[in-house]
């Protein structure tokens, strides 16, 4: 089995890897690069746990091939905090108790970051609509949505 050489940028780092064509970006991140913060919940694009940003666009990394990352900019949950300083979204998720088990949390945070970059002042309805592809089975979404709106307010104030 021949592998393809891919050069890409992940969380600002130049990264090279070898992958098979039918390997998803999710598998490359988790298995090849050991960036296991990105989670697999379904591998069919229905749960959002594997959300990453690809050239500034929110995607499910299970629905992207590893070979497609050539020359792209990828951001994962591991790149959201600034060193040990949490991003306001991360901080607000903690303050609002917006996680129970935490498996969906990386995907929600990456998606929320994409939302707030596009729409810094979403309504509750806009936030719910934008995040409808991120499944959470523990929280009933209440505290997540509160954390998102709280983070948006904080970031608008901080900007």
């Amino acid at each position: 089995m021949s592998k393809t050489h891919v050069t890409t940028t992940i969380n600002g780092d130049a990264v090279e890897y070898l992958c098979e064509v039918d390997q998803s970006l999710l598998d490359v991140l988790r298995d090849t690069l050991e960036l296991t913060g990105t989670k697999e919940g379904c591998a069919t694009g229905d749960c959002g746990a594997c959300s990453v940003s690809l050239d500034g666009r929110l995607v499910c990394s299970c629905l992207v091939l590893g070979v497609e990352a050539e020359g792209k900019q990828i951001e994962t949950i591991e790149g959201v905090a600034n060193g040990t300083e949490l991003h306001p979204i991360q901080q607000k998720f903690l303050e609002n108790a917006a996680l129970q088990c935490g498996i969906c949390t990386p995907g929600f945070i990456v998606a929320t970051k994409a939302l707030l970059e596009k729409n810094p002042d979403p309504t509750e309805e806009e936030a719910r609509y934008y995040l409808a592809g991120n499944l959470c089975r523990c929280t009933g979404y209440d505290k997540i949505i509160r954390a998102v709106l709280d983070a948006a307010a904080e970031m608008r104030g901080a900007a």
Binding site: T36, K39, I77, V80, L94, G102
Partner: peptide, 23 residues
């Protein structure tokens, strides 16, 4: 009271290891 959970930071940064994360 409602302090931040002790395992919270690891869960919002992707550092927490779940079942499939053990190699």
């Amino acid at each position: 009271t409602r302090p931040i959970r002790p395992d919270g930071a690891d869960k919002v940064t992707g550092r927490a290891a779940f079942g499939a994360d053990k190699n």
